[in-house]
């Protein structure tokens, strides 16, 4: 999997790259619009992370160029503005997703794997680990071909952990991923513990091996 990170803030780009490498993605960087255009025209990528505000141009122009060149890369726009206009304009220009700064790396990981799964869709859009299988279209989870009845939140939680497999996902990132803006209400992670407990219990009862590890004090990790 090849990913292009177009981001002028080098430290952020570096963090993104290190995080994605742990998922064995191959990352390339572009710090300016010029560099980005050169790379886009020369190579094929599975996903492009595109910062809209670049020192030598607007990221939306790069998006426009991609469409003109008939490239089929999945594009996630990254913006510090969190403005609706940018979001709508970006999505209209063919971006696949929108990520507002400051984002959790695990949220970025989840969005990237969602896009790649969609782009690589080959009839059976499923994820499998050992005896655990998730059908992404039907949103059905099975263990050893037996259906596991998960609530929507539990399903989202499982998918989020799997998208960031082998990396620690913080409670904070999970809270924001599951409740969106509603995470504003409390700095309280009790509801995550409850969902997590139920999820682990259901998977365990279905006979799945315990892949979700609790990382004490920090969060959770799906080991595969």
């Amino acid at each position: 999997m090849k990913i292009l990170i177009i981001e002028d803030e080098r430290e952020l780009a570096k963090s993104m790259m290190i995080y994605l490498r742990q998922e064995s993605y191959v990352c390339e960087m572009a710090y300016t619009a010029q560099e980005a255009l050169e790379k886009i025209l020369l190579h094929e990528y599975d996903c492009i992370l595109l910062d809209i505000t670049l020192p030598d141009g607007n990221g939306l122009e790069i998006l426009d160029r991609l469409k003109k060149e008939d490239k089929s890369e999945g594009v996630i726009i990254i913006s510090a503005k969190n403005s609706l206009d940018d979001k709508i304009q970006g999505l209209n220009l063919g971006a696949d997703d929108y990520l507002a700064k400051p984002f959790h790396l695990s949220e970025m990981g989840a969005r990237i794997s969602a896009i790649i799964r969609r782009k690589r869709f080959d009839g059976n859009n499923t994820i499998s680990f050992d005896d655990l299988t998730i059908d992404l279209i039907g949103k059905v989870t099975t263990v050893k071909n037996k259906l596991v009845d998960l609530t929507r939140k539990e399903y989202d939680l499982l998918l989020f952990l799997i998208s960031n497999k082998n990396r620690v996902v913080s409670k904070n990132a999970i809270a924001e991923h599951l409740s969106g803006d509603a995470a504003d209400v409390f700095d309280n992670f009790d509801f995550i513990y409850a969902h997590m407990k139920n999820l682990k219990k259901k998977l365990c009862e279905a006979g799945s091996q315990d892949s979700i590890k609790t990382v004490y004090g920090l969060g959770y990790k799906f080991e595969a």
């Binding site: 510090a80 400051p102 959790h104």
Partner: peptide, 20 residues
């Protein structure tokens, strides 16, 4: 507020890497 978003993103991302 805009200008704070990027350093905040850097800070958060470093913490998440540290966590790993």
């Amino acid at each position: 507020s805009h200008e704070l978003q990027t350093p905040l993103a850097v800070f958060r991302s470093k913490l998440e890497l540290l966590m790993q």
